[in-house]
Design a protein around this nucleic acid. Structure first.
Length: 921
RNA sequence: AGGCGCGUAGCUCAGUGGUAGAGCACUACCUUGACAUGGUAGUGGUCGGCGGUUCAAUCCCGCCCGCGCCUACCA
């Protein structure tokens, strides 16, 4: 092995080999386990959220695969209707071409070309993460088979009256010229104004003042509403208003939707341009007057002077004109929620159009029940509240989009505007007995991308065909996703899965937190605080990082600030940490919280952990290659350290397995970290040195040590493989033969199973005793500033038979690890010299002061220990003096407390004795 | 407005009705043959505040303070 661990050198070649060997395809096994990858957007690039989420899925998948289950990680991507269309349109725009210049078919041709060239970028990036996706089964939502599933679902839902077409108010994106669903609208508070307008009564008896944040919509007003019980307006209901600028006569109506407390208590009603007014309009049979074009310009329904004006320009003009007429009462600053399209960023208009909708309520009911029944379990459980909250207040889902890229709606229109829904034109003609010469044209619109994504868990497995894959892998085992798309996706998959397969799409939903930057801020391009997972893996120079973060900003003036912040946070760029270090960091940070603050120091720590593992492996190989390690079952003798580390390994295996089962990847990561660093490296390797380097140790004992070093290391590699797949594979290739293992890849090796028979309390007690002795002596050395290299003489007093046996057994280890030149056993009653003392049970470990140790320093140290003990004794005694505690606390707690006092007092006595001796010097 | 969550060491975060933990940072010493991306030892916390329940509260309950997120509407 190379002297230094260099992840860049090993990772790519290992992944290629895994793929060549077909390590990720499901193999026959005990049980089926499957995960459907939440399909990344085909235009997407890998971000920290993906990296985190995919690490978790890969841990689960590799764990199950090693357990010998038939394991499938189904991958692929979605076609991202609007996003992809925008990408290609932007490319065309650079050539001065619009999609309309090309026409629909030629444009779609271009989109497919783009997809072939650039659409697999994210799949390539996923490989860098080590994601063990079965690429041979990669799917795309626009694949013919998946498109067929979409058609099938659409037609079935339509036939059951769960899809309908109608003129409804929808969220309209005037830049993209399409409807979008509620979930694609992002509302944020912005500064605006509240205009108070005077609306004259038709009978000339005065006016009503209405308040509005959008004065331009007055062109479409069809009533003014007041609260039915509002005494200020009781006489006015039934009268009419002469609508200014327009001249239309509109009624004053009473509706309890109006809040009398707000504004003036009278409200203009614009049914075609406001969701609430729309409802009011329906209740009162008001006309719906659409005054906007699809571009959100004023249309021909409005008076001539406003036609063609942009909505915001119209607003200014209308306010001016009203003011000129003396009808502007006041303007007040006002904060309001402004809805914007999540793709275009433009202000969304409520807009009256013909659209297709899914009737969600009948689908939501079984989806709610599935979670109530426990057929689907959320982890952490609390997220089911969010799910219920949304499902119980669900609105119909607008699924049509006025774009070209996507699944075209399978509906055909004749010249009379009558439409027919069917699987294709031929079947429509057949079903409805339409002759071949009746002209039919297909609906121009396509479906919301999420419509096809909602089918993902079963469409990728071949549905509607009854494939063996579907039978084996559906329902999938778990869905791993962020809480931000519970509504978008989780809820819709459950509805569709239940409806079309009769089964839930997954049994568990693991909801993870969102990766944020070091300050807890959401990572975003506009803030300039994004980290690219590949930059953490490969490293990046500061200048390049700044260039990346400041390129193509929507607000170029932010560049300077972003550069400054980047220079502050990464003064020398980002070093290459490698994939494994990043994955281990994600695992360690995968707690149940909602935010994951990504800290560069954390990944640095785990890179060091990988280095530690690397170096430990080098030590083991140096001491075992070309040595007898008992591969052929030659007789071995296992000492306490060997039996101790094997015992600890079983505990660790149990802990890691349980933690993964509970989705506590943080626990699993720390169990591995602790075992490798604090047990294996700090003690096992150190304790092996005296055995392997001393003369006079039996062959069987040395063989036992070597065999243990190798076998435990090999187990560590398998245990850690799901978390850090590359480094474990690289090392395993060398270590496996020494451990008598064969196989092409660690990824197909059996998962380490704890063997409870190998738990060894006696060995644990002995080694813990040994560690306590060594630590006690090291503590004296450290506190007394005795150079580490200086050998010490140790005297041991007050020993039990057990102590003496263990002293004899571990003399070499003790001497070497504590750097002792001799150990003198003092007989009972023999006077102890002035010495620094450490306690190990009843036994006293004494380092004679002779010239080495400063009297006051040692007295200080003793006093600190004594104070600590006295403090504990006080606390515990006070408890025990309280009759309520003794009577009412559980007996074992009381006993424990008594034992603590006894132990502390014994220690205290010894320390005080020592103090007296030293003071007397 | 409703819902959810958070506040524990300098930082990032675990945690439990009964002795407060980890990593990083910090201090001192150390280039000993796996590893200075390291070793050894050490410093550091009225667990946001106030009450309540309890023999016992960082943990359970209530209120308050501070912070965050989500959903839905106020023209």
């Amino acid at each position: 092995m190379d002297k230094t661990y260099d992840p860049g050198l090993i990772e790519r070649k290992i992944y290629q080999r895994w793929e060549q060997l077909g390590c990720f395809a499901p193999e026959p096994g005990n049980n089926a386990y499957s995960i459907a990858l939440p399909p990344p957007n085909v235009t997407g690039v890998l971000h920290m959220g993906h990296a985190f989420q995919d690490t978790i899925m890969d841990i689960l998948i590799r764990h199950q695969r090693m357990k010998g289950n038939t394991t499938l990680w189904q991958g692929g991507s979605d076609h991202a209707g609007i996003a992809t269309q925008m990408v290609v349109e932007r490319q065309l725009a650079a050539e001065g071409i619009s999609r309309h210049d090309l026409g629909r078919d030629a444009f779609l041709e271009k989109v497919w070309q783009w997809k072939e060239q650039s659409g697999d970028r994210i799949s390539q990036q996923l490989r860098r993460l080590g994601a063990s996706i079965d690429w041979s089964r990669e799917r795309f939502t626009m694949d013919p088979a998946l498109s067929r599933a979409v058609t099938e679902v659409f037609v079935s839902l339509y036939e059951e009256d769960l899809i309908y077409r109608g003129k409804r108010l929808v969220n309209w994106d005037p830049v993209l010229h399409t409807a979008i669903s509620d979930l694609e609208v992002v509302s944020e508070e912005e500064d605006g104004h509240l205009w108070h307008l005077r609306y004259p009564l038709s009978d000339g008896s005065g006016h009503l003042v209405v308040a509005t944040t959008r004065p331009e919509t007055m062109l479409g007003d069809s009533a003014v509403a007041v609260h039915p019980e509002d005494p200020r307006y009781s006489g006015l209901v039934g009268k009419t208003i002469q609508l200014p600028l327009v001249g239309r006569e509109i009624p004053i109506i009473a509706d309890d939707y109006v809040d009398p407390e707000f504004g003036t208590g009278s409200l203009k009603i614009t049914p075609a341009h406001d969701f609430n007014d729309y409802q009011v309009g329906l209740r009162h049979q008001l006309p719906q007057i659409n005054i906007l074009t699809p571009d959100a310009c004023i249309n021909d329904q409005a008076p001539a002077q406003y036609r063609g004006l942009d909505r915001f320009e119209a607003r200014t003009r209308i306010v001016q004109d009203l003011d000129a007429l003396g009808l502007l009462d006041s303007i007040k600053p006002h904060k309001l929620m402004v809805p914007r399209g999540d793709r275009s960023g433009s202000v969304v208009e409520p807009y009256l159009t013909d659209q297709w909708f899914v009737r969600t309520e009948p689908l939501a009911k079984p989806a709610i029940e599935a979670v109530e029944r426990g057929d689907i379990r959320f982890v952490p459980e609390n997220w089911q509240k969010t799910y219920f909250e949304w499902m119980r207040n669900i609105e119909d889902w607008c699924i049509s989009r006025q774009i070209w890229w996507g699944h075209r709606i399978p509906a055909w229109y004749d010249d009379q505007g009558q439409f027919y829904v069917g699987r294709d034109e031929a079947s429509v003609r057949a079903t409805h007995q339409l002759a071949d010469d009746v002209p039919l044209r297909q609906d121009e619109d396509v479906l919301d991308t999420w419509f096809s994504s909602a089918l993902w868990p079963f469409s990728t497995l071949g549905w509607p065909e009854k494939t063996p894959e579907l039978a084996t892998f559906y329902p999938t085992s778990v869905l791993v996703t962020g809480f931000d798309i519970i509504f978008f996706w989780v809820a819709r998959m459950v509805m569709m899965g239940l409806k079309f397969t009769g089964e839930v799409p997954f049994h568990e939903v693991y909801i993870h937190g969102l990766v944020r930057d070091h300050d807890g801020q959401k990572m975003s391009k506009s803030k300039g605080n994004v980290l690219d997972p590949l930059d953490l893996i490969d490293g990046i120079e500061l200048d390049q990082l700044i260039a990346k973060r400041t390129a193509g900003l929507m607000q170029p003036q932010m560049a300077a600030r972003i550069e400054q912040a980047t220079r502050r946070e990464f003064p020398s760029g980002i070093p290459a940490f490698g994939t494994d270090a990043m994955r281990f960091t994600f695992a360690a940070q995968a707690t149940l919280g909602r935010d994951i603050r990504f800290d560069i120091q954390r990944i640095e720590g785990y890179r060091n952990f990988c280095t530690k593992l690397w170096n430990a492996a080098r030590y083991v190989l140096m001491n075992t290659q070309d040595h007898d390690c008992g591969q052929n079952n030659e007789p071995v003798e296992l000492g306490a350290p060997e039996r101790w580390i094997i015992s600890r390994l079983q505990e660790t295996e149990l802990a890691v397995d349980r933690a993964i089962g509970e989705y506590r990847f943080d626990y699993a990561a720390s169990a591995i970290y602790e075992f490798v660093w604090n047990h294996y490296c700090d003690w096992m390797i150190e304790l092996s040195k005296p055995c392997l380097n001393s003369d006079g140790v039996s062959m069987a004992a040395q063989r036992g040590t070597r065999r243990t070093l190798v076998r435990v290391l090999e187990s560590i590699l398998r245990l850690a493989h799901p978390f850090i797949p590359f480094i474990t594979e690289e090392i395993w290739q060398q270590v496996a033969p020494l451990a008598g293992k064969t196989g092409q890849s660690i990824s197909r090796q059996p998962w380490p199973q704890a063997d409870l028979d190998k738990l060894d309390p006696a060995a644990v007690a002995e080694v813990e005793w040994l560690k306590q002795c060594i630590s006690g002596i090291r503590n004296i050395r450290g506190e007394m500033n005795i150079p580490p290299g200086r050998p010490l003489t140790l005297q041991v007093a007050n020993t039990t038979a057990q102590d003496r046996a263990w002293l004899a057994e571990n003399e070499t280890q003790l001497k070497q690890l504590a750097r002792l030149d001799s150990i003198d056993l003092l007989a009972d009653g023999q006077t102890t010299p002035a010495a620094a003392v450490a306690l190990c049970g009843e036994m006293k470990l004494l380092v004679p002061m002779g010239g080495l140790i400063d009297k006051t320093q040692e007295l200080d140290r003793l006093q600190r220990e004594i104070s600590k003990l006295e403090n504990e004794i006080n606390k515990a005694s006070r408890k025990l003096e309280n009759p309520n505690f003794v009577d009412r606390a559980p007996a074992e707690v009381v006993t424990q407390e008594r034992e603590r006092v006894v132990r502390f007092q014994s220690d205290l006595g010894k320390l005080n004795e020592q103090k007296t001796t030293i003071e007397a010097l």
